[in-house]
């Protein structure tokens, strides 16, 4: 199987190329050639599209389509970023197919699995088209260290039919947390009464060397934490070694984002909370008593 890989970020390209080796024997990467975007040695071939001034990533769609049309790979793996999902959708329309999005698993046979119905179910599907397109998140395909041959070929830019004009780009103040790659995650939910109490949670996270994420209400209703840190459907899907759920009731919308964790620890005052059914260790108690005690004794 010939797999093509396209990503928005350089870092994701390496990861996805390595992962692609699990699926196909030949892996080719597509990059928009610029100073900071060099071959990473993971692919057998790198297709380099010359970077155009003032052209946004999405406007390379036609170029990608031309390359895919000529090279006819069996599978195109794309990073599940917002820009890339738009590109994937447009490519799928051009090739008269549909994208398998946000896969949590992809087999050699091309069968992808992804969550549906708000996490209540997992759907297994497969493309009927000669070209499969899939967006796959970080950490889903466990990569190998195997290096590619790394030859490079330039593919010319194709002028898009509908060009957009970028007026302005403002970098978001990036939260320094990297939840998808964190080994330990503390998730905080509605059980905390006010924003200031997050301090106590952060203290615990620091003591056990974890990053802090949250359930949807904390990010969306209360806005106490950035939207990028919420775990669950349409948020982060994590699989850390240890997940500590504090004041989280454990509704399915949240648990789909953490139930692949190796060990789950739960703290909740409601002994009927669903989270205890999904926990390895738990304590039915007031988090305002338990958390400070943990900070104190785990230090």
């Amino acid at each position: 199987m010939k797999v093509f890989v396209f990503t928005e970020k350089v870092k994701s390209l390496l990861e996805l190329c390595q992962g692609a080796r699990q699926i196909g024997e030949r892996v080719e990467a597509i990059i928009i050639q610029s100073q900071d975007n060099q071959d990473n040695g993971a692919a057998d071939k790198v297709w380099s599209i010359p970077m155009q001034d003032g052209v946004m990533l999405e406007d390379y769609t036609e170029t990608l389509a031309a390359l895919l049309e000529r090279e006819k790979p069996d599978l195109l793996l794309i990073e599940p970023s917002k820009r890339c999902k738009l590109i994937a959708g447009r490519l799928a329309a051009i090739f008269e197919t549909s994208v398998m999005t946000d896969l949590i698993e992809l087999t050699k046979e091309g069968e992808g699995r992804h969550l549906v119905y708000g996490g209540a179910a997992i759907r297994k599907e497969k493309s009927n088209n000669s070209l499969s397109i899939a967006t796959v998140g970080p950490g889903v395909l466990q990569g190998t260290g195997e290096a590619g041959k790394g030859e490079t070929e330039i593919f010319p830019f194709v002028e898009p039919s509908n060009k957009m004009k970028v007026i302005n780009i403002v970098q978001k103040t990036k939260s320094s947390v990297d939840l998808p790659n964190a080994k330990r995650v503390v998730g905080v939910g509605r059980g905390i009464a006010k924003e200031e109490d997050l301090g106590m949670i952060r203290e615990l996270a620091e003591v056990i060397d974890a990053e802090v994420g949250c359930s949807r209400p904390i990010a969306e209703a209360e806005r106490w934490m950035p939207k990028e840190t919420y775990i669950g459907v349409s948020g982060l899907m994590l699989s850390p070694e240890v997940y500590v759920a504090i004041g989280i009731s454990g509704q399915v919308q949240h648990t789909v984002g953490m139930n692949r964790s190796k060990v789950v620890i739960a703290i909740n005052k409601d002994k009927n909370a669903a989270i205890f059914g999904q926990a390895d260790y738990g304590i039915v108690g007031d988090l305002y008593k338990v958390v400070p005690a943990l900070v104190d004794q785990l230090k």
């Binding site: 799928a92 008269e96 197919t97 549909s98 398998m100 069968e111 549906v116 209540a120 179910a121 997992i122 759907r123 297994k124 599907e125 497969k126 493309s127 009927n128 088209n129 789909v256 139930n259 692949r260 789950v264 739960a266 005052k269 002994k271 205890f276 059914g277 999904q278 926990a279 390895d280 260790y281 738990g282 304590i283 039915v284 108690g285 007031d286 008593k289 338990v290």
Partner: peptide, 23 residues
């Protein structure tokens, strides 16, 4: 264009459920 093979609720991962009552 996509063939749906199955749609099933996820299997629950077996957890220890070692829960301590009271604080």
């Amino acid at each position: 264009t996509l063939q749906v093979i199955e749609t099933k609720a996820p299997e629950q991962k077996e957890r220890k459920k070692d829960i301590i009552q009271g604080d």
